[in-house]
Design a protein around this nucleic acid. Sequence first.
DNA 1: GAAGTCTACGAAATCGATTGCCGTAAACGA
DNA 2: TCGTTTACGGCAATCGATTTCGTAGACTTC
Lengths: 345, 345
Amino acid sequence: MAQQRARAVTQRGLAELAGVSVATVSRVLGSPPDQRHRWAAPETVRTILALAEDHGYTRNPHAASLRTARSNLVGVMVPRLQDFVLATIYEGIEEAAMENGINTYVMNSLDDTALQRTRTRAMIDRRVDGLIFGDAHLDDTFLDELREQGVPLVLTSRRREGHVSVTCDDYLGGRLVAEHLLELGRTDVVVLAGLEFASTAYDRTRGLIDRLAEAGVEVPENHLIYRGFDTAAGRQAMGEILEAGIRPNAVFATNDFAAIGALGVLQDHGFSVPNDVALIGYNDTPLAESVGIPMTTIRSKMHLMGREALLTLLALIAGKEVSSQKLEPELIVRASSAVSVRGTR
Amino acid sequence: MAQQRARAVTQRGLAELAGVSVATVSRVLGSPPDQRHRWAAPETVRTILALAEDHGYTRNPHAASLRTARSNLVGVMVPRLQDFVLATIYEGIEEAAMENGINTYVMNSLDDTALQRTRTRAMIDRRVDGLIFGDAHLDDTFLDELREQGVPLVLTSRRREGHVSVTCDDYLGGRLVAEHLLELGRTDVVVLAGLEFASTAYDRTRGLIDRLAEAGVEVPENHLIYRGFDTAAGRQAMGEILEAGIRPNAVFATNDFAAIGALGVLQDHGFSVPNDVALIGYNDTPLAESVGIPMTTIRSKMHLMGREALLTLLALIAGKEVSSQKLEPELIVRASSAVSVRGTR
DNA sequence: GAAGTCTACGAAATCGATTGCCGTAAACGA
DNA sequence: TCGTTTACGGCAATCGATTTCGTAGACTTC
């Protein structure tokens, strides 16, 4: 039989050993180092700290949460962790959470509104202090209802009118792509836009369209196709476009993975990238650089986004005034659009 | 000011409303439906259930955990959720957990032994009932120490001698690749093996080598290179191999992403895949099929692996006898190795 | 030197749920 | 008829930490 896990010491145990009351132990152990002396004599503080150390004391979070009605837990809902982008944002969240003594639950909603609801409920039932959503839908009021109920929440990756969010300035990202295309003179563009209910898809597309319009270029309705953000969706969308007889000289995918899927299809059909078709992705995931033809893309600060989202949520929980934040995107030009009359940089 | 979140009802509240004691409420609400009548009259049961429903009662898990010393929480440690494989395994874990009323914490250890320790500690401090590790190292005794302390734990993805694990039969996977190469007559193989301390890398490589040895083929020491599992590592490894003047007619990467990285490098150097070099990956991630040249790979049951890992952990926590499990791998032949004298597959 | 002001703690009430131990009745067995 | 189950459910102790009152003594202050 394996050695039984030693019964953990509690504050009561430490109190008895130190000859003080649990109240004192609680106060000493619960205060930040520079505040401890406010509660006990230096000698007492030292004794308690030493005992805690020796006996490997760790606070029982359930007991603490029961008393304080504060769990130091936040829930994170993402469409899918398989998505590199969300996994990276989550890393940022996790990092900032650890730094602040917070733990996180993550769940995949698969962008399914039913799952979104049941899993959010599961988190609330677990008494999280607040929630971060990476799967906001433009066309669903679930989040509004939640806020009505007074649940502290912050959005990230995708925004939604009326909610605090930390996102990439996707509209600007779209504009950057448009400007790049204008410079290249490749304005007969097809947009593999992602999912219609995601603000990322919407804003990136809108930014592109608006900027092109300012230059007098119209993007026809049938050049926009919404199929999803992953590789399979990119293949699908690109395939449909070609099948419809559309022959663009540029393709903008609102996600690198979709772009990679599109790349495969384009090559299968004998199109050269970038000579026949310039290809641009979004997010600057590692694959963008490593795939056969290094891909032009928009770099977004995913990790930072996660960090800021968590920090914002913490501020919100603390009752502070918080506001939305848009992180700046950056255009990264690579071979997949290296067709400019200027050098290939 | 947003509407204040209504103070949640507690069992005490329900008890008062129903005119019974909290003990009865607790028993009725805590028993499985078919056991409820053992504790209260049908009428009472109905009243309590109705009141709970009406007032949206949800059990306070902190209070319950405090009392029972059981949290219904399990911790999951993965090297990195950015890795599609681990993200998928986690989805399986999450799914099975939800079905069993269990919640999960996930954390990234980044395969850093220090992070591994501190984050595991953070989970234990949170009083998880058990842990699943997806980042076991062959050369580190951390997990052994943990088990000594009586912490219930199960490994997945990677195994480690002396621990219960749910993995893919990686050794067999390696053998399958070897057999495929023997059939193709492409036995001058380079192995981009991944990380040396990971059993996945070790077993897949060993399986390949052993099977080739049985056929009288030796894999020279310098044809094995350990650089990591991701795309960047694949690029790096492949680059070094070529720089060393090695010119294999087949490359086996123990991970699809590394394979994709290698593919890029091979093409950059003017090698044709599969004509000059056959390329084989591992895991059958969606990208394997979608990337320029559809890739031969080994399919592993990642989602199922996660499910089984969780179920195994639950059994372990329940005090049952559990044993390791190896899921069967399957060879998926695609264009990247379609060079057989037989038809293309 | 009387009245504040600190300092350093302690007592005890909570937080919400679980559970072992009992008590009371009605039903049952022989 | 009387002892024994069985059904139904209350009492009260706990789990471990936090926090509101207090209090006793030391120190100031005018």
